[in-house]
Design a protein around this nucleic acid. Sequence first.
DNA 1: GGCGCTTGGTTCAAGTTTTAAACAAACCTA
DNA 2: TAGGTTTGTTTAAAACTTGAACCAAGCGCC
Lengths: 172, 172
Amino acid sequence: MTTRWLTPEEQRAWRAYVAASLLLEDALDRQLQQDAGMPHLYYTILAYLSETPERRLRMTDLAERLKITRSRLTYAVARLEKDGHVRREACRWDKRGTVAALTDEGMAVLERTAPGHVATVRAALFDHLTPEQVGQLEEIGTRIERALQGDDAESAPEGLPWLRRSVNPPLL
Amino acid sequence: MTTRWLTPEEQRAWRAYVAASLLLEDALDRQLQQDAGMPHLYYTILAYLSETPERRLRMTDLAERLKITRSRLTYAVARLEKDGHVRREACRWDKRGTVAALTDEGMAVLERTAPGHVATVRAALFDHLTPEQVGQLEEIGTRIERALQGDDAESAPEGLPWLRRSVNPPLL
DNA sequence: GGCGCTTGGTTCAAGTTTTAAACAAACCTA
DNA sequence: TAGGTTTGTTTAAAACTTGAACCAAGCGCC
């Protein structure tokens, strides 16, 4: 089968995207390393934890949300734990499980550094986009996501937003 | 000054973008590592070299195009040289300079692996975007780029032979 | 219950990459 | 020619990632 090369338009888009994502990730890492002492991925872990009702998530759930391997997550959480931002707990309902819980200190770091992070994201991105473009970005991002990890429409179980088979009693 | 948090729309866009870029870079790295024995960044270096008329670029020019530090580039080129994909040459006009030149072997690797790479980019991205979205992606990417590295409209210096755009078949 | 298969998560070893700082040589300008 | 800048490399230390191997606990099934 003959290769379908990128059209000039696609090529421009591709290059713009690659350059932009490199610069953006760099800027984010630098800012967060500076202000929070951790790279973007680690900050994101804390952020995700902070959003669940109990500020904790099963390792596998967290890994899936972050789109990283469990192994990578284990390493990251180990560091976050060493730094006191996260605490590991045993899962009561599944003895194999581990739950990563945001500590008060971790939450404090998040609260202290979130404004700077948001400011960076704005300065690097949203301040330069029209509302339409924001919508377009979401749509494009969503499509890539769908393309790259089977579009298994695994809707979150409505009752328990924060878990795999839980930290909570299994619903029957 | 009070923090301007992200609006719900911005937040959705941001998350979609972060997830997508992680997945995309991962997929690309995996495919290229598999087929070409090198990660995306390294492939991109070869690709950029292949596009110049003489298949060679000054280290600094290359670093600027790639949006990476010279130090990082030195490391990368060292490996590419060890693998025989690139050769370092002294720059005749500036004795401080080093020129990275694509070897025939490097070119061969590129030609052999480009189809697979393009296929991956299509499968992960362009096959799921409308032509309008391709344009939108370019525009958004360009804006980020401009935002993050001063918009010095540095047009290519007129004199130097291999700092000019390519006429060759697009390999990326 | 007991036998396998799957899942959750960690560990391990090895390698890869990154960063920042320091440096030397060459260039440039006055 | 002195002084400042640019080029590119070196260095040393960290940080990160990967993949495979592994164990323990759940699950299904007869």
